[in-house]
């Protein structure tokens, strides 16, 4: 700790960077909750003491560099294929804790089949699903989760259900899947929701440690950049719009 004020050469660390993260500086936009999600996951890995036996599966989207951020072994997967890659890792190395980190384009568009079937098989893996209602990396196109009326570069007049259907409700869809052991939807817009999100993330990893089956946490996230909002406006938009479409809650809890 550096000396900041006379007489205060030693300080108690109230906060430290979780051991589950590397020192690499993240490349996310200001106000983007990808960073918060990373931090919560990293804290959980540290608290459960599983950093040294975890393989993170980074997918394709703004979080593609997740392999640089998580202080674990990591495998970078093709767009949408994270759960298949995680299946291979887990089956070939069952003592490993495996999680995928996927956006809504990655998971709900190109990779829908892989996530459903991994759940169906009850793969003992954990999926972190970042739902920010747009494709961030490719510059703001419609995602399957885009809200009705939401403007994106490919829905310039707002999403029209006649043209592009209704938003995809991943948790509701997976909640009837018998392979799922833990399933929750959370957000990260204030201390209360952040604490709740962390509880669910912890529970999801615990589910895997217990060998109970497939676990997934959907995190309703922000994309201030492509929502064309300030970070605070983005948080408010989550509260006012996203959470209306995507109600929070625990959908499946194998021992709840």
């Amino acid at each position: 700790m550096s000396e900041t004020r006379a007489g205060h050469t030693e300080a108690e660390a109230l906060y430290h960077r979780p051991a589950g993260l590397t020192d690499v500086q993240m490349r996310y936009c200001p106000g983007c909750t990808h960073g918060t999600a990373h931090k919560l996951i990293a804290e959980v890995l540290e608290e459960l003491d599983i950093i040294e036996r975890t393989v993170a599966v980074a997918t394709v989207g703004c979080s593609v560099y997740a392999y640089e951020y998580f202080n674990t072994d990591a495998v970078q997967a093709a767009h949408g294929r994270g759960p298949a890659v995680a299946t291979g890792i887990k089956r070939a190395s069952p003592e490993t804790i495996v999680f995928t980190y996927q956006g809504d384009g990655d998971l709900a568009a190109i990779g829908l089949s892989e996530v459903i079937h991994s759940a169906q098989r009850g793969e003992k893996m954990t999926v972190m699903f970042i739902n920010n209602a747009v494709f961030g990396m490719t510059r703001g196109q419609m995602a399957p989760t885009t809200l009705v009326g939401q403007k994106t570069t490919t829905t310039p007049l707002g999403r029209d259900p006649e043209m592009s259907g209704m938003p995809m409700m991943i948790c509701e869809m997976l909640s009837t899947n018998p392979g799922v052991a833990y399933l929750a939807r959370e957000t990260m817009i204030d201390p209360k929701t952040v604490r709740s999100a962390k509880r669910s993330i912890r529970k999801a990893f615990q589910t895997q440690i217990d060998g109970a089956g497939f676990s997934l946490v959907e995190l309703i996230s922000t994309c201030p950049a492509w929502w064309h909002k300030t970070p605070l406006e983005a948080m408010q938009w989550v509260r006012d719009e996203m959470l209306v479409q995507y109600p929070l809650g625990v959908f499946v809890d194998y021992d709840g």
Binding site: V55, A77, I89, E114
Partner: peptide, 18 residues
């Protein structure tokens, strides 16, 4: 048994990584 060949080869990718 994978759900598609896309999944097969990516499962192979994961197992090969170990």
């Amino acid at each position: 048994q994978a759900e598609s060949e896309l999944a097969s080869i990516n499962m192979v990718y994961g197992a090969a990584a170990t």
